[in-house]
Amino acid sequence: MYPIHTTIQKLLAEERFQEAMTLIAELGEKRDQSSVEFLTGMLTETQNTLVRNEVAIALKDIGDNRAVCPLIEALSNADMNRSRGTLLYALEELYYEPYIEIIVAFIGDANLEVRMQSFLLFENAADKLSEQQKQICKETLLKCKSERTNEILDEALALLNN
């Protein structure tokens, strides 16, 4: 383990969250790809929402596709619902299209940030999707619309009809 990883773990154990988040942000700023596994492990290990969000942003900054699966898993974890907007944001520059069926369901979320972030991801991927993915997304969006309607669901459905 790298010394900075050990330092971050020590700071977290001592509940010195702000200092740990500063170091986590530095890993992202440096685009330290050697830290991807360490950071993805932290997504589920930490109970601190602010730390989890900082980890997600660092993973976005690093831009390594190894982060996609752990971000999707975290996104799907009900215990992490307070981080979903940031987790979705972290996927922006990554290759998330194979998981679009999971992402599109969040367009029906009660949280505006989550709805908007998932719509942006969907909008960016819509023209790259296979017919099968489009059909699954349409079914998911219609199911969401039957449970809770919002304008963003209509916009997403319109994207599929173009």
Score class of each variant (00 low, 15 high):
7 T>C: 00
54 E>L: 06
49 T>P: 00
118 S>T: 14
149 T>H: 08
153 L>K: 04
147 E>G: 03
73 E>M: 04
149 T>G: 03
61 D>Y: 06
139 E>L: 10
55 V>I: 15
114 V>P: 04
98 P>H: 01
18 Q>P: 00
70 P>H: 10
119 F>A: 06
42 M>D: 05
138 K>W: 01
23 L>V: 05
120 L>E: 12
91 L>V: 12
79 D>W: 04
119 F>C: 04
9 Q>L: 03
67 A>W: 09
32 D>T: 06
157 L>H: 08
32 D>A: 15
91 L>S: 08
131 E>F: 01
79 D>H: 14
115 R>I: 02
26 E>G: 04
161 N>M: 01
1 M>T: 09
21 M>L: 02
143 K>W: 03
51 V>I: 14
41 G>I: 07
83 S>D: 13
150 N>A: 05
13 A>T: 11
30 K>W: 02
74 A>R: 01
103 I>M: 00
134 K>I: 12
113 E>K: 12
98 P>V: 01
119 F>L: 05
66 R>C: 06
96 Y>S: 11
63 G>D: 09
138 K>L: 07
88 L>C: 13
21 M>I: 06
15 E>P: 00
130 S>V: 06
115 R>A: 08
146 S>F: 04
17 F>W: 05
86 T>C: 07
119 F>S: 07
160 L>Y: 06
146 S>G: 13
44 T>E: 13
93 E>Y: 03
15 E>A: 07
154 D>H: 01
144 C>E: 15
138 K>P: 00
157 L>D: 12
154 D>L: 09
83 S>W: 03
103 I>N: 10
56 A>N: 10
3 P>N: 12
144 C>L: 02
40 T>A: 05
40 T>G: 11
12 L>Q: 04
74 A>S: 15
55 V>R: 04
51 V>G: 08
145 K>H: 06
78 A>N: 13
26 E>K: 10
155 E>K: 10
135 Q>D: 14
19 E>W: 00
118 S>Y: 10
79 D>Y: 07
104 V>Y: 05
104 V>K: 10
69 C>F: 08
73 E>A: 11
156 A>F: 03
82 R>V: 15
76 S>P: 02
13 A>L: 03
45 E>A: 14
162 N>M: 02
139 E>R: 14
78 A>Q: 13
